[in-house]
Nucleic acid binder design. Structure first.
Lengths: 345, 345
DNA sequence: CTGAAAGCGCTTACAG
DNA sequence: CTGAAAGCGCTTACAG
């Protein structure tokens, strides 16, 4: 059962372990003869280098950690898939960890990745940069943020513009005559949650729409919080005519409640989702959403961490987000189809 | 930048590395005095044991590999999430890898996991058991199959019954008067693909329904193959009145095509999906599906690999699958609502 | 081009 | 209870 080591290969090939190592790792100082003998021996024996021993000696690994908030969130699943495939093309293995939208679990996995001595960590961070994240940074382990950032923590990041999509969505709804727009906001421990809420408030002010605190509900980027928020919004004495949710899972929660209550999306209530998850296009009516590009994000995050690892300058990138108008938004109820009506609903 | 080692901790605490190691790993043979001094020193220095060195010495790691077919498939995302959380509770870290429904990529990651010297591997396998998988097995690395199996390869597995759900679905459709049922089958390189197709054929025969080879299309468990199959089925001179797909992604592909063609699900064409993915419940009409339990599968697979690792007997388990009737299945077009009509459509 | 030797950071018999 | 020493499987200056 004992695994075959480089000594076994060396013995089989009739050379020293040093020579075997050189051949196997492509070091130029090897003879034709050694090369063929060692390669052959390794093949015959089914030699599989011990990555642990190798990285212990070389004091760096070829593995990166990818710490995401929720693997079941299709948005992050897309990031995971593309980051992994992209890393693989550069011969980098990816250790995928799931923080489950919990700062504690994020710390736990950060510790784990540190113990595994990964070469670098791509993380969709949470919290204020205290805890294990601070440690990681002071240890000098390369870190790249993806999707989210932390104020005051200066690491390269690939994010998307959280403003333009929301701004576009509010303008679109205002143009349809909506004056009371409900927001299911994300958790304020995340930069995306904060920025989207901020953009929303600003847009509401700009368009002179109802700035009612009851119209904003803080969720946690998970389905149930979206459902809860939808129920509260709909139970308001003066409910909104349109609802915007700050991520795909909360959008699903909203849609679930609307179905339960028999409220028709698009006609009874306008809905704008977030993240252009495939399922939203298969919905009827097809959802109007704020779209950005998780696939590209994942690949760029890997590029960024490679830049850092290879000592190249790493420049943060902000991807665009934009409104994709489909069928789930329509004229505000009671206002006809005339945009900007004088009266209120 | 150099990481702090156990020698640093030992020096700081004024003991030997051996004692420091014993304290840190909870060995009983330590004095009260050493314990407090070492623990304190480790805390002060922010000591983080090098997992590589540890596992090199102990020749086993506390990490398992989880090799799934497609992380973007919500079914597998559920397995991944639950397996990981469950493993974590036992202090086991999970290396999640994505085979991307490709046997080559499966081999690549198997090699990688072997190099990482994971304690064991949970895999949703593909292919015939040749290639790296055979090597893994002959090396004696503990393996557990999840969701799928390979004929003739005897490892513990947690799967679900691929028969009962399909059988129930065909019976249900036959009861609604359908005689021509289309199947978007899974790839025949997978046990699930084979078993579901087999169950379908048998059920068709039992109910005496149209056994037309044109009604069966082989897909690859991905969205586009579902769409392609749907188009071909609908373009048949004598198209089916109901369609059954063998996984969630292909079901999505089918639904996409129906929407494009303006075919109403449930009334124009009955659809039975596979995997009770949340999105199917948010659909309108809500989808009738064959449901099984990925969350439980993930957790059980971890239990199984722990059994193997701890030397306990590991017993394979087969979970149930069952038909959940919702709104996407209705009477066959042209047959009225009378079940088992004499005439054909 | 090649080999002997040291060392990466741990753990664990072996003595005491 | 404690320490010195060996060793896990590699890689890499250092000589030759």
């Amino acid at each position: 059962m004992r695994a075959v080591t480089i000594h076994d290969v060396a013995a089989e090939a009739g050379v020293s372990a040093a020579t075997a190592s050189r051949v196997l790792s492509g070091h130029p100082a090897t003879s034709e003869e050694s090369r063929t003998r060692v390669t052959e021996a390794a093949r015959r024996l089914g030699f599989r280098p011990n990555a642990q021993a190798r990285s212990l000696r070389k004091s760096h690994t070829n593995t990166i950690g990818l710490l995401l908030s929720d693997v079941r969130n299709p948005f992050f699943a897309d990031i995971a898939h593309n980051a992994e495939q992209h890393a693989l093309e550069s011969g980098i293995a990816t250790l995928l960890c799931n923080a489950n939208e919990s700062t504690e679990q994020q710390d736990l996995y950060l510790d784990l990745l540190l113990s595994q001595r990964v070469a670098g960590i791509i993380v969709a961070p949470q919290g204020d940069g205290a805890g294990s994240l601070r440690e990681v940074l002071t240890l000098g382990v390369p870190v790249v943020f993806v999707d989210r950032t932390i104020d005051g923590v200066d690491v390269p990041s690939v994010t998307s513009d959280n403003r333009s999509g929301i701004t576009g969505a509010v303008a679109h709804l205002a143009g349809l005559g909506h004056r009371r727009i409900g927001l299911v906001a994300g958790p304020q421990e995340t930069s995306t949650g904060r920025e989207r809420l901020e953009a929303f408030r600003q847009a509401i002010a700009e368009h002179g729409l109802d700035d009612d605190p009851d119209l904003v509900h803080l969720g946690d980027f998970q389905v149930t919080s979206g459902a809860r928020a939808a129920n509260q919004l709909l139970d308001l004495p003066h409910p909104p005519t349109a609802v915007l949710a700050a991520d795909s899972l909360m959008t699903f929660g909203v849609l679930e409640v609307l179905r339960e209550r028999g409220i028709r999306v698009g006609s009874d209530l306008s809905v704008v989702g977030y993240d252009d998850v495939a399922a939203f296009r298969w919905f009827s009516p097809q959802l109007t959403v704020v779209a950005h590009d998780p696939a590209r994000m994942g690949a760029l995050a890997v590029d960024l961490i490679r830049d850092v690892l290879d000592g190249r300058p790493a420049r943060s990138v902000v991807l665009e987000s934009s409104l994709v108008v489909r069928e789930s938004t329509g004229p505000a109820l009671g206002t006809g189809s005339v945009p900007h009506p004088a009266g209120r609903q």
